[in-house]
């Protein structure tokens, strides 16, 4: 049976792993390779490295550490941040990443998703969506790596979810911005709404604070994977123990 995936997300800035609350006020939490190896050994199913400064600053991800991470990890990993072209993606995939994830550049140029899927296949093209609940429904936000530039992207989240799949996205990471870093639980309402539109794997992001939050997001929102950062970085949850709790709740995990 296919296991639900637990994915620690490592926000990378200037070669170090950082964590902010609601996308702001970042503090350094550790070295990339050290944390990657720790999560691998604790039983993480996959890792995401997100260069949070790359996109707003208009530069691409520094490729050096991708190669070093690829040598250390025997589980899949995804690299996100500032991937604007087929050439950007190719460099990262050739360095050994399984997947690349695009967010703001895809909003500016949706054709990028189609180009990437055509060149590399849908299976390695992840689209990250930062979404807010508003009075008019769910709205996509862009440039969220920089609080001074973060703004409504002028798109409805559900419509964008449909479009990125039609363009060849192989997986969607939905980051519910209001719950990010707050540790009060995943946004089950929003994730369930997106799940109903989503025929590719869906990854929940934003809000994990306890094992029960993971149980709820798998059972109620039926996502394929759950991503979290601060609960793992701070040691609030240890992946191995989290998986035992999920198993106890009848959820298939890789142990």
């Amino acid at each position: 049976m296919l296991a639900k995936r637990i994915i620690p997300c490592l926000d990378v800035r200037d070669g170090q792993v950082v964590k902010g609350v609601r996308f702001r006020d970042h503090v350094v939490v550790g070295d990339i390779l050290e944390l990657a190896a720790r999560y691998r050994d604790e039983g993480a199913d996959e890792l995401v490295f997100y260069d949070i400064t790359a996109s707003p600053e208009g530069r691409s991800v520094d490729r050096d550490w991708v190669d070093r991470v690829a040598r250390v990890l025997d589980i899949p990993f995804c690299v996100a941040g500032g991937i604007r072209s087929v050439a950007d993606a190719e460099a990262i995939l050739n360095a050994g990443a399984e997947k690349i994830s695009v967010n703001t550049p895809a909003l500016a140029n949706p054709g990028l998703i189609s180009d990437l899927a055509r060149r590399f296949g849908s299976q390695c093209i992840v689209v990250g969506i930062d979404s807010e609940t508003t009075t008019t429904g769910f709205r996509v936000y862009r440039d969220t790596g920089d609080p001074t530039r973060s703004r409504d992207a002028g798109r409805d989240t559900l419509a964008w979810v449909r479009e990125v799949q039609d363009r060849g996205a192989g997986e969607i990471v939905l980051n519910c911005m209001a719950s990010d870093g707050v540790r009060n639980g995943y946004d089950l309402r929003q994730l369930s709404a997106v799940r109903a539109e989503c025929r590719v794997p869906l990854v929940a992001s934003g809000g994990a604070g306890s094992a029960l939050h993971f149980v709820a997001v798998f059972r109620d929102a039926k996502v394929d994977a759950a991503l979290a950062a601060s609960v793992f970085h701070r040691g609030t949850l240890v992946i191995r123990e989290l998986k035992l709790e999920l198993q106890g709740a009848g959820i298939e995990v890789r142990t």
Partner: peptide
């Protein structure tokens, strides 16, 4: 969902 993505037995 497709692709079939993740850890399977």
């Amino acid at each position: 969902p497709a692709p079939h993505m993740g850890w399977n037995t």
